[in-house]
């Protein structure tokens, strides 16, 4: 039923469309253009071709940033894909008080990354609780400065990200677990499958679709990490900036009156390209078979058409030669 004038939907959608165009699409196009210039504030930009990208791969800081992000991704994906699943299984039962546990496990998610990082800075300080605990257990005789070495700083930040992310992915898995059928579990149990094998043959296949998406989302957010390392290293990016992440580098290179906007944009373009592929991969795995089937079907129908035509032609030939 048509009951509104043609412009009503556009009036309602107008603000959303304008915002997307002005604050997402336009800045994105601008970033791509700037990446090929030497733009700086207060100075006319010149087109420099691929110079920024050539320079990037010779820049030690960028190589460090890529390494930090790569380690972040490689460590975070398995930890944040499997630990929250186990926690979700643990809280996915009807025992008394379970609601309280679920709520509390979610709490680190809503706290700001900055605040949590500030707390972790004190925990991992050379006189902090972690060092005291290790000394108390006799594992260290001298306090270890976690936050001034490249990899220990990175791993502290990873620990923070994992700790903060557990609750979030737990809730995502709880929704996925709700869709795993009870009947399958029952059938498997009747066939003599124990808890362990039921986990692998019923639960994991049941949440596999969600798991893949979760892994991709973790990968993307691990590449975008900023606040954790920024706060833990007081904005310096660790010793000599070696623990800097890609986003930290964008922020550091592009800021201020002397910011190299073109160079920062080139890094942004690279970041965009790396964050795109996990999601494309998921799309390919989830919808690839369907696309493949569609293409096969199409090819089959084209082939059938061809055969049909050839058959007709042959028949015509038979008719004409007779």
């Amino acid at each position: 039923m048509r009951a509104n004038r043609w412009f009503t939907p556009w009036l309602l959608l107008g603000p959303a469309i304008i915002w997307v165009l002005v604050f997402s699409i336009w800045p994105f196009l601008n970033t791509v253009v700037l990446a090929f210039t030497n733009a700086r504030p207060l100075q006319a930009a010149q087109f420099v071709g691929g110079d920024n990208f050539v320079r990037l791969f010779g820049d030690d800081r960028f190589v460090y940033a890529l390494q930090t992000c790569a380690v972040y991704v490689v460590v975070c994906i398995p930890l944040l894909t499997f630990l929250p699943l186990l926690i979700a299984l643990l809280v996915n039962s009807r025992i008394p008080g379970i609601g309280f546990f679920r709520t509390t496990f979610y709490f680190p998610v809503v706290a700001s990354a900055v605040v949590v990082a500030i707390i972790w800075k004190w925990l991992f300080d050379s006189s902090g609780v972690v060092n005291e605990a290790l000394a108390w257990m006799g594992l260290l005789d001298r306090p270890y400065a976690f936050l001034v070495h490249r990899w220990s700083l990175t791993f502290c930040a990873i620990g923070l990200t994992v700790w903060k992310g557990l609750g979030y992915y737990m809730v995502v898995y709880l929704a996925a677990l709700g869709n795993v059928s009870h009947e399958l579990h029952e059938a498997a149990a009747l066939d003599g499958a124990g808890r362990w094998s039921r986990f692998w043959v019923v639960t994991v296949p049941g949440v596999r679709g969600g798991m893949l998406l979760i892994a991709a989302l973790i990968g993307v957010s691990a590449m975008r990490v900023f606040s954790e390392i920024y706060v833990l290293s007081n904005g310096t990016g660790g010793p000599g900036g070696q623990s800097m992440t890609v986003v930290m580098m964008i922020q550091a290179v592009g800021k201020g009156l002397n910011g190299q906007l073109g160079y920062a944009s080139a890094i942004s373009v690279i970041l965009f390209l790396v964050t795109l592929w996990p999601l494309l991969l998921v799309a390919l795995v989830n919808w690839g078979p369907q696309l493949g089937a569609m293409r096969r079907q199409q090819r089959a129908s084209v082939e059938a058409n061809r055969l049909l035509k050839r058959g007709q032609a042959a028949r015509r030939q038979v008719v004409t030669t007779r």
């Binding site: 997307v20 002005v22 604050f23 997402s24 699409i25 336009w26 800045p27 994105f28 601008n30 970033t31 700037l34 993307v220 975008r224 900023f226 986003v247 964008i250 922020q251 592009g254 910011g259 906007l261 920062a264 944009s265 942004s268 373009v269 970041l271 965009f272 964050t275 795109l276 999601l279």
Partner: peptide, 16 residues
Amino acid sequence: TMLLPGEVTLTSQYLT
């Protein structure tokens, strides 16, 4: 825009 992380457009968004 779901595929576009905010960090990518950080510099240009600031310019806008």
